[in-house]
Amino acid sequence: MECKDLREMVVSHSSGDLAGEGRVLVESHLSGCAECSELFSNSNEVWRLLGEWEEIEPGNDYVSEFWSRVEKEEARVGFWSSLWHSGAGWKLAGALASVLVVGIFSLVIFTGDPGGNVVADRDVQDDMLLLELDSATSRDTTAALEIYGPWDGGIDVVNINGNGGFN
């Protein structure tokens, strides 16, 4: 095997992860290869160097700090959270829902239509539509009547509809 094929195994060996044939193979290769021996010692050295990254010591009162943080969090979320966890929250939610339902029913029952005076936009639109329809009908009627001859000036609708104007 060539060095490039053994590099990862050499590092594995330095981690103590090689056993059996692999270990024998790498050890025999290392005894005759300066480059891989250097890699092996560098791998060990890197691990030792990482050990120089010093630890830090936490403060002595971390346990009490933790519990005061828990208390603060509970106080913040506090009232509602404890309400839910105690089961009282469900009762309160039920009571609020009941009040809401009763309120809605009361509104429907006691506040009816105050004399039909409420005019919605839709009502206004309907009225305008009717007016337009009425006006269009009048124009159409006039146009349709043109086939009965030349009309001078305005049309006396009373005559037409009245005393046999078409006779």
Partner: peptide, 12 residues
């Protein structure tokens, strides 16, 4: 194991 070994090679 692969993560550790590869990482170690890069660190070298």
């Amino acid at each position: 194991k692969a993560y550790v070994h590869r990482g170690r090679m890069k660190l070298i």
